[in-house]
Design a protein around this nucleic acid. Structure first.
Lengths: 342, 342
DNA sequence: TTGTAGGCGTTATCAG
DNA sequence: CTGATAACGCCTACAA
């Protein structure tokens, strides 16, 4: 375990002052380009690596971005994170990632940790049951930029990156109606979350436009888990007026529901047409392939990280833009095609 | 943007020395418990948060663990990461995560960044084509513990966490043989990686034991992507002596291959029995459900992180244990059951 | 273009 | 049990 070389060591060796070395290493304009060359050369030769803490301590910034997500291990989220990592890495920012596991309590704890780690900025997608935004106030109070993505909150100072969930929900439902469905069930998540309430709103609008009634009993709030899909399926079987269309706000749940319906002898789409959400890889594995909304996860991660970084570098002000909407799209597959026009 | 409170502010207010405040805040045993109480109370009241950099600078450690993975957005990896995050969070370590995107070049760059970030330890699963281990030498030279998981390297000082891939490969193959398969094709990844070469070895052993010939033409090295599965399927159809069994080293690839085979009119398992690897959620979506090897991703992440942390805390020495093997298990489903004994 | 000097906030050592 | 003091390594006024 050798000792670390510091700018002092380099300075001593070259008979220069540490200040000059520091400046040279940071490519300061006021340093003779020749001295610069010599300094950087000996620096690498001596195996010098800049001490981030000393630098951070001095500069009061960390080059670190905090990320809080509900879960790491969902296809969507890991794709988002992949996008963020790409961008952050390119701009030499580090990512500190933590998961709330869908619990506000843990989200609050995570926020606190991030705060103490003094992240330069924070990217958040909130948990299932988060309602208040207090735990993020500390950040805005200290001027740490806050950016919500996908599951966003109405925070006075937070910018958000989303897709148009109303439109997506509308398209999904309108498509089912276009296929002749008249009783469409909607399986969704917590209506505290924009993503779900907005999709529901889109659903409602589509029904309204088509002159179809909005019935409470056709709306199921669940946690959109695998089990929820199975339960939804058995509920459907027990219903008096069985729905002929099904719009589930998450592919993974939709797929488990479809499997259960098929096991129960229903045929898709003829008995019941199904549309999911996310364009998860499983949607092309299930048979019939699942119609869904394509959701730009990686792009969302990239945009979120890039916006934050631009803001931090002063290239762009996030506080002025307070909402960025990404494009999403209905992808029609067999699970919803009643009219067999291929 | 208010000014930060420091231990000096607290000290001044309470007429104590900063040293005492520091000790109290760190729960030092030699401090009067009453003084401690008062100090912590006013600290929270003043909105004090410890400055990690100052602390790190002083202590020469970061409480940060670096993680380098091939990709963030695979079901397996994100599950591993979820496990790591849980453990790290509990022990108040931060995780800095980066992905190599299966390229050595990026892996080297990531390692460098991690090194400069002065992570306390490093968890690595190597890229598709990594061969040399030089880029990790800097860590061991500085005494930074290095732990490989899943895709490991033979590094003199690195500990590794794996499953017994030989055994798993053996079981998968032996199971197919037990179902009456006599020509078993094996689709695998880069043989530079322990996970794939070991599974191949297991495959070989099972054939050997059953007195079946090992044929080069039945081995396909691919990148195990979705496309690779489709190509494998079309290759199978073009073969003179069509295989009656198929062992694919990755569920995702296996599933796409199965779909393609089915589209081509082959029936599974009667024409060809299939076994995958990973127990990915898709394995229970595809029809018939895919027989696979259950692979403890979350556990692997937990064990990896915990071992590293224990080592860092001096609770356990990683250098002495240089290999931890987790349990894996064959899960039999319909894709491989030729004999219909359910 | 380069050097001097002070401080960022903590903690470890030594002394009381 | 508490205090004084000196680092940790870097950056930046200010001075030369």
């Amino acid at each position: 375990m050798e000792k670390e070389t510091t700018i002092y060591d380099i300075a001593k060796l070259l008979n220069l002052s540490p200040a000059t070395v520091s400046r040279a290493l940071n490519d300061h304009p006021a340093i003779n380009s020749n001295t610069k060359r010599i300094i950087t050369a000996t620096a690498t030769e001596m195996g010098y690596r800049s001490n981030t803490f000393a630098s951070n301590l001095r500069r009061q910034r960390t080059n670190t971005i905090g990320v809080i997500v509900p879960r790491l291990n969902s296809n969507f989220m890991s794709t988002v994170l992949a996008g963020m990592e790409k961008v952050a890495n390119k701009s030499s920012y580090n990512l500190i990632i933590s998961q709330s596991l869908e619990s506000v309590k843990k989200e609050v704890a995570n926020a606190k940790t991030m705060f103490n780690s003094r992240v330069d900025g924070l990217l958040v997608s909130v948990a299932y049951d988060t309602e208040k935004t207090d735990h993020f106030d500390a950040f805005t109070k200290k001027g740490v930029p806050l950016l919500f993505f996908d599951r966003v909150l109405d925070h006075k100072q937070g910018t958000s990156i989303v897709i148009d969930n109303v439109k997506a929900g509308y398209e999904a439902t309108a498509h089912l109606i276009g296929q002749g469905c008249r009783r469409i069930m909607h399986v969704t998540g917590s209506l505290k979350r924009n993503v779900y309430i907005d999709r529901l709103e889109g659903y409602r609008l589509a029904l309204l436009e088509a002159g179809l009634p909005y019935e409470e009993e056709l709306i199921r709030m669940t946690d959109l888990s695998e089990e929820a899909g199975i339960e939804a399926a058995s509920h459907i079987q027990s219903m008096a007026g069985r729905p002929d269309g099904l719009f589930i706000a998450n592919d993974f749940c939709a797929v488990s529901c479809m499997s259960a319906l098929k096991r129960a002898g229903l045929s898709i789409p003829s008995d019941i047409a199904v549309v999911g959400f996310n364009n998860d890889p499983v949607s092309t594995v299930i048979e019939p392939n699942l119609t869904t909304i394509d959701y730009p996860g990686e792009k969302m991660g990239e945009v979120a990280a890039q916006s934050l970084i631009n803001h931090l570098n002063g290239t762009m002000n996030i506080q002025t833009t307070n909402r960025i909407v990404l494009h999403s799209e209905l992808i029609v597959r067999e699970s919803s095609l009643k009219s067999a026009i291929f």
